[in-house]
Design a protein around this nucleic acid. Structure first.
Length: 404
DNA sequence: TATATACCAGCT
DNA sequence: GCTGGTATAT
């Protein structure tokens, strides 16, 4: 298909990246998804995706064979030559954010060879890769995620941005009837004031309001703020990419409202820890159903630290050093909102009535799951990673001072 | 060191 | 009642 007016084209097959999956599967909660008016040709993208970064709004569309991108800027508009430079920056950002240097189909092949359960979702759920997000935004977003669902988390993150960050610019929607304003994610200093707790509560954040304010204050107290550019706290969070997984996790666990699961989400989604698997109730259910863990399929068995470690280490042994990426594919395939999804037809014009049954349940034969003796009896020489991680992390955690 | 409960809000 | 958990008290 032809490149949409004003867009740049980047050749990229859908199996390398499916925006329709990746931007809606609970990694980032800040992308706007706009329907395109009457896409008669099925090879024409059915949606446009927009995200407000620091100084620009990135707009994306996608076909079977290409990713189309353009940037929108506030007044004054850059000159044509200036714009060219800006789009080059956007391209660099795209490569970084979507980690396009990683060959996803190759990873899929490896996971499928290691795991027959993965083989079952491989074809339909292609193109699902890990985003490389901003750690600060990622941290706050996942503090919002406890006892919560994608839809409400999305609303909360949006209202956080509109409340605490001035609009960068406004853009018309794709039918041209309405205009929408775009706000960057607010920096730590803007969420650190005590009054933030009350405001966020009034916006429906519940008990998470206090977590967010205290986490922001903690960061600002330690790292300070500056006038322009990214704040020291944001840079410090990003610098955790340079630490080993266990050490970075220890730092994250110091924040209020951040437990093991949220910390692991941040490690995986913004700190380059590709082997980390956040174990939530959903992943737990997948482990029970397909990987031989004991537990009630529908009942709520509590997630203990011990169980967390067992599920985590078992799945890491199965999937290898990109286990966190593989987990994201399985996780997405089991979301009810993806009941009608397929990578070859990501956004059907007539959405299938959502089934009660998730894809993992309905599509896969249940493998003969032996009540798995003890996953821990072997040290798994291929991935010995955090053997001492648990005890060290917990011990450290007991010592730390948390503000009241 | 291991379980049990409260916590906000929104939806079923 | 339930939900992509965490903090706190036993």
């Amino acid at each position: 298909m032809a490149t949409p007016a004003g867009f740049q084209a980047l050749p990229l097959p859908l199996v390398q990246l499916s925006l329709a999956a990746v931007l809606k599967c609970g990694q980032s909660f800040r992308w706007s998804i706009l329907p395109l008016p009457k896409p008669s040709d099925p090879t024409i993208p059915a949606q446009e995706y927009r995200l407000c970064l620091r100084d620009r709004v990135v707009c994306l569309q996608q076909s079977q064979t290409a990713l189309f991108y353009r940037s929108a800027f506030p007044e004054p508009q850059p000159s044509p030559t200036q714009l060219q430079l800006r789009e080059a920056e956007t391209l660099l950002w795209l490569n970084d954010y979507f980690q396009l240097n990683i060959d996803l189909p190759k990873l899929y092949d490896e996971w499928a060879a290691r795991d027959s359960v993965f083989s079952g979702v491989k074809e339909r759920f292609g193109g699902i890769r890990m985003l490389r997000q901003d750690p600060w935004e990622n941290l706050i977003s996942f503090i919002c995620s406890s006892n919560n669902n994608i839809s409400r988390i999305t609303k909360m993150v949006q209202s956080l941005c509109t409340q605490y960050s001035p609009a960068l610019l406004s853009l018309p929607d794709l039918s041209g009837h309405e205009t929408h304003s775009y706000h960057p994610f607010p920096p730590p200093s803007s969420l650190a004031a005590p009054s933030v707790t009350v405001t966020l509560r009034s916006l429906g954040f519940g008990y998470r309001a206090e977590y967010i304010q205290k986490t922001a204050k903690m960061l600002v107290d330690v790292h300070g703020t500056i006038e322009e550019g990214r704040e020291p706290s944001e840079l410090w969070l990003e610098s955790l990419r340079g630490l080993a997984t266990a050490e970075a996790r220890t730092e994250l666990l110091k924040f209020i409202g951040v437990g093991r699961k949220v910390a692991d989400c941040v490690l995986l989604m913004s700190l380059d820890k590709k082997e980390v698997i956040p174990v939530d109730t959903h992943v737990h259910q997948i482990a029970i159903k397909h990987y031989g863990f004991k537990g009630l399929l529908k009942g709520k068995s509590p997630m203990t630290p011990k169980l967390y470690e067992e599920v985590n280490s078992k799945l890491v042994r199965i999937w290898g050093d990109y286990a966190g990426w593989a987990h994201s594919v399985l996780f997405t395939s089991d979301l009810k909102s993806f009941a009608s999804y397929s990578v070859q037809n990501p956004t059907p014009s007539a959405p299938v009535k959502s089934s009660k049954r998730s894809n993992l349940e309905s599509l896969l034969p249940t493998p003969p799951t032996t009540p798995s003796p003890s996953p821990l009896k072997r040290k798994a020489s291929a991935s010995p990673p955090e053997s001492s991680d648990k005890s060290a992390g917990l011990a450290d955690r007991m010592k730390r001072l948390r503000r009241k």
